[in-house]
């Protein structure tokens, strides 16, 4: 069982994402969003391994990354709803968030060279730049340019790959030749594979790698994970068997309906109510 506060955070993120899909269904959200259902444990596990002054780069599927780092449920919801108090005044929306030491962008692979630049700035300070990408991101050339620089210049860059087996609607095996570990090896960069979804196990597994990154040894940490929800909203074309497999790996059913789950659901409902009542940004 995860520690109480880890579980609370996991559940809050889960219910936040479910609430977003519900808001979309009710026509109360504009545009699009990409939920991290099933992948919440990745940033929650990494949370305590990252220092407050480390830099984190996130992507389109980044709500969990943001919430695990700042627990700012009101700010993110207000941002997505275009209400007052949003992280970025409603300009950025779901996938363009910025706070000091945290930035997300909506273009695949783009953040890695930028994260390498921040890592160059941080080099020698013991701080690091952590960039979340997906399996699909490996289709972008920018990833390879950045890894080459990170290895050459010994940058404190940690690339966290959330390999959820699917890029929008395209299964990984149809868009990625070879392997992610092979790619890291080609640059002489350490690759750490994480298959567990157990928070404490993951922390034990990757702590050493994170410490090495801080000394200028870049690393790729690949989480084998599963996207339980759609790519964005109701656009899941996977067959029942594939979906069942994804759900089998989900951390959530074990906790569903429990006291902590109910409390998290109620808390998010309350936040939805509060933010919905705010005026437009």
């Amino acid at each position: 069982m995860p520690a109480e506060d880890d579980l609370e955070l996991l559940l809050l993120i889960r219910h936040f994402e479910l609430a977003l899909l519900d808001l979309f269904d009710r026509g109360e959200l504009n545009g699009t969003t990409h939920t991290c259902l099933g992948q919440e444990y990745v940033p929650v596990a990494l949370g305590p391994l990252l220092r407050e002054d480390d830099h984190v780069f996130s992507n389109h599927r980044g709500h969990g990354h943001y919430l695990a780092r700042f627990r700012d449920f009101h700010g993110l919801l207000a941002e997505i709803m275009g209400r007052r108090g949003g992280v970025c005044g409603g300009v950025g929306g779901s996938q363009h968030l910025y706070r000091e030491t945290y930035l997300s962008t909506g273009i695949q692979g783009q953040s890695l060279p930028v994260a390498a630049g921040v890592a160059l700035h941080l080099k020698g300070s013991g701080r690091l730049a952590c960039a979340y990408i997906g399996d699909g991101t490996w289709g972008e050339g920018a990833v390879y340019e950045a890894l080459n620089l990170a290895a050459l210049w010994e940058l404190p860059l940690m690339v966290v790959v959330e390999n959820n087996g699917i890029a929008q609607s395209t299964p990984t095996e149809q868009q990625l030749a070879g392997s992610i570990s092979g790619r890291a090896a080609a640059f002489g960069i350490e690759h750490r594979l994480v298959t567990s979804t157990v928070i404490d196990e993951i922390r034990d597994d990757v702590a050493e790698t994170v410490a090495a990154v801080r000394t200028g040894r870049p690393a790729v940490v690949e989480f084998v994970t599963h996207r339980v929800g759609p790519h964005s909203k109701g656009d899941d074309t996977r067959d029942a068997e594939t979906l069942a497999l994804a759900r089998k790996h989900d951390w959530y059913p074990l906790h569903e309906g429990g006291q902590a789950d109910q409390a998290a659901r109620a808390r998010i409902q309350q936040i939805v109510g509060e933010v919905s009542a705010r005026p437009c940004a």
Binding site: H55, A116, V118
Partner: peptide, 15 residues
């Protein structure tokens, strides 16, 4: 790597 160089510069400027 013109793309990466410009990205790295963007990262430096961001910091």
């Amino acid at each position: 790597s013109e793309g990466a160089i410009t990205g790295v510069a963007g990262g430096l400027a961001l910091a």
